[in-house]
Design a protein around this nucleic acid. Structure first.
Lengths: 193, 193
DNA sequence: AAAAGCGCTTAAGGTACCTTAAGAAATTAT
DNA sequence: ATAATTTCTTAAGGTACCTTAAGCGCTTTT
């Protein structure tokens, strides 16, 4: 698993010298996971933040009566974790699984904390990552409050075309906050129009 | 308007020496705004991030047919802006108004950028602020996807009791994503139980 | 290659929440 | 104080979306 993608991801926001790059890479644990494998299970301690090198991951919350709510999908070049439990080292609220065979780099909380101390530029890097995540979640809230299910579905398809190809409609429905049956009728209506 | 509250807010996450404190304070513009005044209007350039020293602010999105969606409330000790437009210096999607007479400190985008360069510890500070904001928004998404309107209302009251006292039910309804009429019937049902 | 399981669709009936409307209560303006 | 606005409530009728159920096509397991 080569490191070009993750280094390019970092280089979008900060520049590192050779020593800093080596130190950063020494903290990463590459991992290959197969489809349907579980990276984090609700109730477990969430020890890592994950960078997706290849493949697709999905984080979901399991509510009452086995109802799943998909919180996020992550494809190549994305970071994903249960941020609340990762930062506070509390039992996870979310479950994270592989939608397809995937390759990742894992970074442990204690190693990230060392990284912040040794290479403070990473404070800037993750400040920007968190900022973008905040903006994205806020935009999703705006859409959830102000748009119909059909409009949210259309937006999802245009915003995340790659994700839409990899995941099932059941999973898309659970991201949009509707049932798979209702998504199916929305799609049927769209076809007719 | 004294600076104890905002300095204590900063000190929760980083410690500054006297020079750094003075430089930081020199960038802030204290401002008193009266109830109903508009701090940021949709379409305007969003130049500042605001720290609430006293009072209550509200950020909302105006959808079709004059339907407002409240994105956030901010009481004393909170930071608020339209983050997307503040960071990218684009026209605002959100409108921010004062729910009651309020006192704030404003920090301009260009001054924040200078602050990051001169006192890199602020990268850490805002990394943590953004991280908390991200976690909060994600929790709100989980609740919006998995809970009923009544459960969300109960959670809102217990999580933000001070806000609930300051704002109207119309505004709470628009935060929860329901109509004021429906919130009213929920409250009537609760009283009977 | 059958069986079992899961994903997608369609349809009928149900419920949470919306729309419209109108009156009472509270707040703001004159 | 009075008038004017806005907020909150109640109620009737409507719609977006849910639940249950059944059938069909895939994929996975035996």
């Amino acid at each position: 698993m080569n490191t070009e993608l993750i280094l390019a991801n970092i280089a979008k926001h900060i520049s590192l010298d050779k020593n800093e790059i080596d130190f950063f890479l020494s903290l990463l644990k590459p991992e290959e996971v197969s489809k349907k494998s579980v990276l984090l299970k609700e109730g477990q301690l969430c020890r890592d933040i994950n960078f997706v090198h290849h493949g697709t991951l999905r984080a979901f919350y399991m509510g009452k009566e086995a109802k799943e709510s998909t919180i996020m999908f992550a494809v190549a070049d994305w970071w994903i974790t249960d941020m609340y439990c990762f930062i506070n080292q509390k039992p996870a609220m979310l479950t994270i699984t592989a939608v397809e065979d995937s390759q990742l780099f894992r970074l442990r909380k204690e190693d990230l904390d060392r990284l912040y101390l040794q290479v403070p530029k990473f404070e800037r890097f993750f400040r920007i990552i968190m900022q973008n995540a905040y903006i994205r979640e806020q935009l999703r809230i705006i859409e959830n409050l102000s748009l119909s299910a059909e409009e949210r579905y259309t937006n999802f398809l245009s915003r995340y075309p790659k994700v839409a190809q990899q995941v099932t409609q059941k999973q898309i429905a659970s991201y949009l906050g509707i049932t798979p049956e209702f998504l199916s009728t929305l799609r049927a209506n769209k076809r007719i129009k």
